[in-house]
């Protein structure tokens, strides 16, 4: 084998390694923690003023016992939690049928000046548990929070 064709092979292998390395880095480098599709309540609180006025996504669990329906049947108030922080939410939309306490939600909206989050797009996030009706959900609040993938790994 001539030197030149070997050099070409070396070049190709180096290129494959670079591409594979970049892909691995995307997977393992932990930049996913920062490039979030939605923010957790803790992250939203941390951002503070910076999050005001822009359209952001907020994700978390609907806090138990927090759901209140307004008189007109449209205004909906509840709180979203990630176990440590909680954000109060008002929604001017009809929630999907699966909306309930303790389920994951992803909300698109804005953080108002008084610290409540207003949303017009309410999405329910189901986790990968599929159970029959008679099965009891033995999972604690922590397990449910974990299913939101708030910490990547």
């Amino acid at each position: 084998m001539s030197n030149e064709s070997r050099s070409r092979k070396v070049l190709a292998i180096v290129a494959v390694l670079i591409a594979g390395g970049a892909l691995t880095f995307l997977a393992m480098g932990g930049i996913g923690e920062n490039l979030v599709y939605y923010w957790s309540p803790s992250e939203l609180k941390e951002a503070g003023e910076g999050a005001r006025g822009a359209t952001v996504r907020l994700g978390g669990l609907v806090a138990p016992g927090s759901i209140e329906r307004g008189d007109d049947g449209l205004a909906l108030r509840f709180a979203v939690t990630d176990g440590t922080e909680t954000v109060a939410v008002t929604a001017s939309t009809v929630p999907p049928a699966m909306f309930r306490e303790g389920i994951g939600v992803v909300l698109e909206g804005e953080l108002a000046g008084d610290g409540t989050f207003h949303t017009e797009r309410l999405m329910v996030k189901h986790d990968n548990e599929y159970r029959a009706p008679e099965e009891e959900d033995g999972r604690s609040m922590e397990d449910l929070v974990k299913s939101l993938q708030l910490e990547n790994g």
């Binding site: 995307l26 997977a27 996913g32 490039l35 979030v36 599709y37 939605y38 994700g59 992803v106 999405m123 996030k125 189901h126 986790d127 990968n128 548990e129 599929y130 159970r131 029959a132 099965e135 939101l148 993938q149 708030l150 990547n152």
Partner: peptide
């Protein structure tokens, strides 16, 4: 395939026999 594990998403991650009722 892997994006739901690497990044936060609305889509749930892959299920496994442990997370699915045995009849399903």
């Amino acid at each position: 395939y892997f994006c739901v594990r690497w990044w936060r998403s609305l889509h749930q991650i892959q299920s496994s026999p442990e997370t699915v009722n045995s009849a399903m």
